[in-house]
Amino acid sequence: MTLGSRATAIGGGSLLVAGAAVLALLAILAGVALGGADPVTGERTLVVTDDDGAELLATPVGDETEIVIEYTHSVEKTLVRDVYVASDDGLVMTRMEFSSFGAGLPSQADVTERDGRYVYDPPSTTYETLHLKTGAVADHDLIVGGERYDIAAMSDDGAVELTVERR
Rank of each mutant, 00 (worst) to 15 (best):
A30T: 13
L25R: 02
G31N: 15
E66C: 04
G62L: 00
T49H: 09
A24L: 12
D52W: 00
E76K: 00
L15Y: 10
V68F: 08
T72M: 12
T41I: 07
L26E: 05
E66D: 12
L25Q: 05
L56I: 08
V68C: 06
D82K: 00
D51H: 12
L57P: 11
G62C: 04
A37M: 04
E55C: 11
E70Q: 15
A21E: 09
A37W: 05
L23P: 00
A33D: 14
G36C: 04
I28G: 13
Y71I: 05
L46R: 01
D82S: 01
L46T: 04
G62V: 02
K77E: 05
G31F: 13
G31P: 01
V48P: 06
V80T: 03
A27H: 03
L15V: 09
L15D: 14
V61C: 05
L25A: 12
I67C: 00
V48S: 12
D82E: 06
E43I: 11
G53Q: 06
L56W: 07
V40K: 13
T65N: 12
G35N: 04
D38W: 13
E70W: 02
E43Q: 11
V47R: 08
E70G: 12
V40N: 09
T72V: 13
E66Q: 13
V22A: 15
E43M: 10
V48E: 11
T49S: 15
V68Q: 14
A20H: 11
Y71F: 14
V75Y: 10
E76R: 00
G35Q: 03
G19H: 06
D38K: 05
L29G: 08
V68E: 11
L16F: 10
D51S: 07
D52Q: 13
A18D: 13
G53E: 06
E64L: 11
I69K: 01
